[in-house]
Design a protein around this nucleic acid. Structure first.
Length: 651
DNA sequence: ATTCGGACGGCC
DNA sequence: GCCGTCCGAATT
């Protein structure tokens, strides 16, 4: 019936995603394909179109014969390149991610697809070798349910699992397991994507993968790469050459042919959170992609995030992990000590460190290097009850409070400032900030062992590896050097109180993740590895470390989040900005089945409101947030306004 | 009569 | 966001 249309190339319609971040224009627009461009306009190619009078970039999403638009279609102005750089599956994933975060397609697309590099596109692509088949190391297979997971992958299945990597043996088990899973995936003639939290991690992981599969068989994707290199690796994916991709968070979108497996390493790391709108978490993108692309998923951690535990409890993720009793036989034992028994040993007292920690160093140093983990400086502490020291919670949204100025509590999530607070535990009415951390102590500690090599590693001066000889290695979380050989002989975690007192409702979950990552660098129990946590010895997180039960902790933490109505038990959105902008935003929709907490003035001319909804209503909730934003942009409501769905990190 | 500017609506 | 246009006030 519309054959005539098809036969006249000038009438062909292209649906185009047009550059822009306005929520009310977040949909495709139809353009006519002029006869002169027929054949060059293909789905997934970049074009220039006139939109609102100006020339803009666009992506051709699909070609069609007809348009629902009444008016006369403008013509595509030019084809930037006929390269199909945006695959249909990537298009759909971008849409799903934007929808999940009440964000805009184009904002996600510019993070998912690297900028074009014309010379690279035209240059002949080198042929990619077939990946070599690596020797199996048996890391994943040695843990319960690891073997059936690998078999399912090899058979072309789509198993999804939360994998608690054994926190022992130098910290390379996660990489070995990732290699095994990738090999199993390749065996079923599918491709694999591995996402790592940092550029530093990427270097190590890539080295492992190149050693296993061949130097030229592994593609890397990271924003730190140069434009040409990054685009070359990206094209190697869309053109079906690269079968293995390793990269940082945006690599989770890597458009590999026949994706069979997505691996996210250190899944709880906040490095997986994108810093630009809509602030996606690579783990969330991986989850969406595993559903859309029907592929396997492996979320690895030495601990377990509460978000992942929620998916395990819903039955959406299987598990690969040792029971705590099994771990205790293989992982360095974790002892705990209160930091108040300092007085006994005079030199220890001077350093504000318990004598027990001193003895620990004296016995472990002859065995090998000892890692001393200290909390990074410069984070705000949460307020606690001055009498019973229980963490103070916001009476409005139940997140934790911090001191804004002297004696002025402020909620870290919704911004509420309680006027009169009383402790639900002991009814005291005053709060206190925990004493500042003892980060400096660690350096003095090293001086107390003259003749022993002292090494420092922190964000401003990273050290990647230390030799297998007695040394005191002081590091902040994430900056720990690896110890060559069997791993550290010992681990001392200083100032557990300070780490747990961070003004973040995820503080204890994050503490367990950081401590478990450090523990993984220690040699296993049979080889003499030992760990000691100094401080907060009765805190459930410290107790969970001593039992090596990070999973049990995630389970009970998830239950607490449910009672407190905090993420991931509910869905949230934080909206902030100028008073009138926030007010207009809130008036734009009726907020069905949504708690509206606030708005509150959080700073001069800055207001914030927390929106909260049940998980079952999550889709509708996010759609309402998007609608409020779309009405705002369509009506040109002025002023400053930012919003963020399921905020991870506090500003 | 002519020019300038600010508000508003549509964007294919 | 950005442009186009529509209308009213200011200017000659």
């Amino acid at each position: 019936m519309t054959d005539a249309l098809v036969e006249v190339p000038g009438q062909t319609v292209a649906r185009v995603a047009v550059e822009g971040s306005l929520p009310h224009l977040d949909r495709p627009f139809d353009y006519a394909v002029p006869a002169s461009l027929a054949g060059q306009v293909v789905p997934g190619c970049r074009v220039k179109v006139r939109f609102a009078g100006t020339l803009r970039d666009g992506w051709v999403l699909e070609l069609a014969e007809t348009s629902a638009f009444d008016g006369e279609l403008d013509r595509i102005h030019k084809v930037v390149s006929p390269e199909r750089a945006l695959l249909p599956a990537t298009q759909a994933l971008i849409r799903a991610v934007a929808d999940h975060y009440a964000g805009v397609w184009w904002d996600v697309a510019r993070l998912a697809v690297p900028p074009r590099h014309a010379a690279t596109e035209q240059a002949p692509q080198r042929p990619w070798p077939k990946p070599a088949i690596p020797e199996p190391t048996g890391t994943l297979a040695s843990q319960p349910l690891g073997e059936p997971y690998l078999r399912a992958l090899e058979a072309g299945g789509t198993p999804r699992a939360a994998w608690q990597v054994r926190p022992a043996g130098g910290g390379d088990d996660a990489l070995r397991g990732a290699v095994e899973a990738t090999a199993a995936c390749l065996a079923s003639h599918r491709s694999a994507v591995v996402v790592v939290p940092t550029a530093r991690e990427l270097e190590r992981v890539v080295a492992h993968f190149r050693a296993a599969f061949g130097a030229r068989a592994v593609a890397t994707l990271a924003s730190e790469q140069g434009r040409a290199a990054r685009y070359r690796q990206y094209l190697a994916c869309t053109r079906g050459e690269a079968r293995i991709v390793v990269g940082t968070r945006s690599a989770v979108f890597a458009p590999v042919r026949d994706p069979g497996l997505i691996v996210v390493l250190d899944e709880g790391s906040d490095h997986h959170v994108e810093r630009r709108a809509p602030y996606f978490h690579a783990r969330t993108v991986a989850i969406l992609r595993a559903s859309l692309d029907r592929c396997a998923l492996l979320l690895a951690s030495h601990a377990r995030s509460v978000d992942v535990e929620a998916l395990v409890q819903r039955g959406w993720l299987g598990t690969i992990n040792d029971p705590p009793s099994g771990l205790r036989a293989l992982v360095a034992p974790v002892h705990t000590v209160s930091d108040v028994d300092r007085e006994r040993d005079p030199s220890a007292a001077r350093l504000r460190i318990p004598s027990r920690a001193f003895r620990f160093l004296r016995t472990q140093l002859p065995v090998g290097p000892v890692l001393v983990q200290v909390p990074a400086r410069g984070f705000a502490a949460a307020l606690a009850c001055a009498r019973c020291h229980q963490v103070a919670r916001c009476p409005r949204c139940t997140s934790v409070l911090r001191a804004r100025r002297r004696d002025e509590p402020e909620c870290t999530l919704c911004g509420h400032r309680p006027v009169r607070w009383s402790c639900p535990n002991c009814h005291a009415t005053t709060m206190t900030t925990p004493r500042p951390g003892a980060a400096r102590t660690a350096e003095e500690l090293a001086r107390a062992f003259p003749g022993v090599l002292a090494v420092n590693s922190s964000a401003d001066r990273l050290r990647d590896e230390v030799p297998d000889e007695p040394a005191i290695v002081v590091a902040t979380p994430g900056a720990e050097p690896r110890a060559s050989g069997p791993g550290y002989a010992g681990l001392v975690i200083l100032d557990a109180d300070a780490t747990l007192a961070r003004a973040d409702f995820r503080a204890s979950e994050e503490a367990i993740r950081r401590w478990s990552n450090a523990l993984a660098l220690v040699r296993p129990a049979p080889d003499g590895g030992r760990a000691l946590i100094v401080g907060a010895h009765t805190h459930p997180a410290v107790q969970a470390m001593a039992r090596l039960d990070a999973i049990g902790f995630a389970r009970s933490e998830l239950a607490l989040r449910g009672q407190a109505r905090l993420s991931p038990a509910v869905r949230t959105a934080r909206v902030g900005g100028e008073h009138d902008a926030v007010r207009d935003f809130l008036h734009n929709v009726a907020w069905e089945d949504v708690e509206v907490l606030g708005p509150t003035e959080v700073a001069a001319e800055r207001w914030a409101v927390l929106l909260r909804a049940d998980l079952e209503r999550g889709r509708e909730f996010v759609a309402q947030v998007k609608a409020a934003a779309a009405i705002r942009s369509a009506k040109k409501q002025g002023g400053v306004l930012h919003y963020r769905v399921d905020p991870e990190v506090l500003e």
